[in-house]
């Protein structure tokens, strides 16, 4: 399976409909593809190009720019250990070293059972809680090597599935604009007038 499923196409079209230009939906749609397959397949890029009206090459150019998109299968859990300054000051190198030992892989690798991919990550906006990491973009803060062991145990035993979805799913809650409430989009070239409320009067 690699083109978007019908359900995802419906969702994709809803997302595309929020932007004055369809290409804006490219990154969200790539996330949808990664959510579906765990990584971005060639067919998904072709399909997304068709959906937003750009060439596959353009989709590829955009997709490869961003760190989160994977083009080959990765582990069910992608463990990103932050190594930027605040975390490094608080011992992220030891944490990474420990993780490599524990998982038996180097940063960038995936365990043979396909459970874990280990990555070196950059600052995760949790610097005061250093050292920190993300598993499929869910945080763990102020980790000791022992905490890391426990986390890997929990993940291996699938004890955190309620909180940590498989790789590909980022947000579990999606925005939904109810049709009766949404303003809707207008192509910018069709707008010629100032918004109604700029009439010099109070709106309320």
């Amino acid at each position: 399976m690699s083109r978007l499923t019908d359900a995802h196409v419906a969702l994709a079209n809803e997302i595309i409909g929020r932007y004055p230009r369809p290409k804006s939906a490219l990154v969200p749609l790539l996330h949808l593809a990664q959510e579906q397959d765990g990584y971005i397949t060639r067919d998904a890029m072709v399909h997304i190009g068709e959906l937003v009206g750009v060439t596959s090459a353009e989709v590829y150019g955009t997709a490869t720019f961003y760190e989160m998109f994977k083009f080959e299968p990765v582990g069910k859990y992608v463990v990103n250990i932050c190594g930027t300054m605040s975390c490094a000051l608080m011992g992220s190198e030891e944490l990474m070293h420990h993780a490599e030992q524990r998982l038996g892989i180097k940063a960038g690798g995936t365990t043979p059972d396909g459970m874990f991919t280990l990555e070196h990550a950059e600052c995760q906006a949790a610097c005061t809680e250093a050292p920190c990491l993300q598993v499929n973009y869910r945080y763990r803060y102020r980790l000791t090597p022992a905490d890391l062991d426990e986390l890997i145990d929990d993940l291996s035993a699938e004890r955190l599935t309620h909180e940590i979805p498989p790789h590909g799913t980022v947000a579990k809650v999606r925005q939904h604009i109810p049709s009766h409430r949404g303003v809707g989009v207008v192509a910018p070239e069709l707008v010629t007038e100032s918004p109604a409320w700029l009439n010099g009067k109070a709106a309320l």
């Binding site: 090459a57 353009e58 989709v59 150019g61 490869t64 720019f65």
Partner: peptide
Amino acid sequence: GDPLITFTHRGNNTQVMTFPDE
């Protein structure tokens, strides 16, 4: 009007490429 070659990847790994096999 034929954007069939683009930059791919980022930073020091930036390269010019077509879509794979296209």
